[in-house]
Nucleic acid binder design. Structure first.
Ligand code: SF4
Length: 356
RNA sequence: GGCGGC
DNA sequence: GCCGCCAACATA
């Protein structure tokens, strides 16, 4: 814990950054401790009640802290416009997410974004199902399950999921046949029918091991279930270089699908080259998606983020469940976006966030 | 897809 | 033929 603070001092000097430490205490209570640039500190804790999730407790903590900060140091930015969008970004990117109650991101994603997202951020296994659905206007059971839960996991709301499957499926059947045959299952996966369980999307292990795709199925893991040449073709069609393809195939042939997938991620996002060591390990399709989004929105937001507040996660805090967030209060450069977006510092932070 | 009901 | 119900579980 000593070098944690050392790291903070080095990278985020106390006079330039406001430090906000939050901790979700047992049962969802939360505490805040903030160090302002003028040296003063704020400390406070709140009872949130037993029903409160870890996620919410931390969010509340940071909101509270930012409110104090805003009233003290940034009187110009009030409740509107700039601060709140940052907060929503905050909760998604810099806090421990709570998937069991997952208040995460619901409503942010709509059916018509899926095609775009499938190209930018879907892992191959899901991108493949998406493609199959576009072509066949239909998906077999296994694919519906794997894909449907994944979509829920990325934050697609139930009604949007229904819309997505309906608009595609009804290109090959009438609307009431669809409702009769498939709508129940979709609602069930969202925990709205029967036992009402909010199922966690399948992890890589399950996708690779259980229920191998038969002819006509689109599910499974491409790195395990695709024919070698078909996989090569798909990967290079997606923009991976010759060398990159070979590197990936090496892992694939060794049976290390999740490493191959990680390498694919790195190459497709341009954060490593074909010769360098693989830094990530993909354990869950939704993890692939989150990481991809983190990278992309990091770039996108560098040019869109309201100037004045910049938030960086110092993911060095090894202790307990504590997380720490620094808020920079200087004006940021007017045009960051001239050179494709990222400063070296941002790149470092992103890479730190993603690998492990 | 499986199980179950009529 | 009509219909309901089930499976899952990464991480900071
Ligand atoms: S490794 Fe996991 S995420 Fe990557 S493709 Fe296979 S299953 Fe999907």
């Amino acid at each position: 814990m000593d070098f944690t603070n050392k790291h903070l001092d080095k990278k985020y000097p106390i006079k330039e950054w406001i430090r906000i430490y939050t901790d979700a205490v047992r049962r969802g209570d939360c505490g805040v401790y903030a160090t302002l640039s003028d040296g003063t500190t704020l400390g406070r804790s709140f009872a949130r009640g037993m029903r409160c999730t870890n996620y919410k407790a931390e969010t509340e903590a940071i909101k509270e802290a930012l409110n104090k900060v805003a009233s003290r140091a940034l009187p110009s930015m009030e409740e509107d416009g700039r601060l709140l969008p940052m907060l929503s970004g905050l909760s998604k990117r810099y806090l421990g997410q709570d998937y069991s109650v997952r208040k995460t991101n619901v409503g942010a994603i709509t059916a018509d974004m899926i095609d775009m997202l499938s190209k930018k951020s879907f892992p191959l296994c899901m991108q493949n199902v998406h493609l199959a659905m576009k072509q066949n206007h239909h998906l077999r059971h296994g694919s519906r399950l794997q894909y449907g839960l994944f979509l829920k996991g990325i934050g697609l709301p139930l009604d949007e999921a229904l819309k997505l499957f309906r608009t595609e499926f009804t290109k090959g059947m009438d609307v009431d046949t669809f409702d009769k045959k498939y709508s129940y299952g979709i609602r069930y996966n969202y925990g709205k029918e029967g036992k009402k369980t909010d199922y966690t999307p399948f992890g890589c292990m399950k996708i690779i091991m259980n229920n191998p795709p038969a002819a006509g199925d689109a599910h499974g893991c491409p790195f395990r279930h695709f024919d070698t040449d078909f996989l090569k073709q798909r990967i290079s069609a997606n923009g991976v270089s010759k060398d990159g393809v070979e590197t990936i195939m090496k892992y694939t042939k060794g049976g290390h699908c999740q490493v191959a997938c990680a390498k694919y991620f790195e190459l497709i996002h341009g954060i490593s080259d074909s010769s360098s060591e693989v830094e990530m390990f993909i354990q869950h399709p939704n993890q692939y998606f989150e990481n991809s989004q983190k990278l992309i929105s990091g770039v996108g937001k560098a040019s869109t983020t309201p100037r004045g507040v910049k938030v960086v996660n110092s993911s060095q805090n090894s202790m307990l469940s504590q997380s720490s967030v620094d808020v920079k209060q200087e004006q940021m450069d007017e045009d960051l976006d001239t050179d494709m977006g990222l400063t070296q510092e941002q790149l470092d932070n992103l890479e730190q966030d993603i690998s492990l």
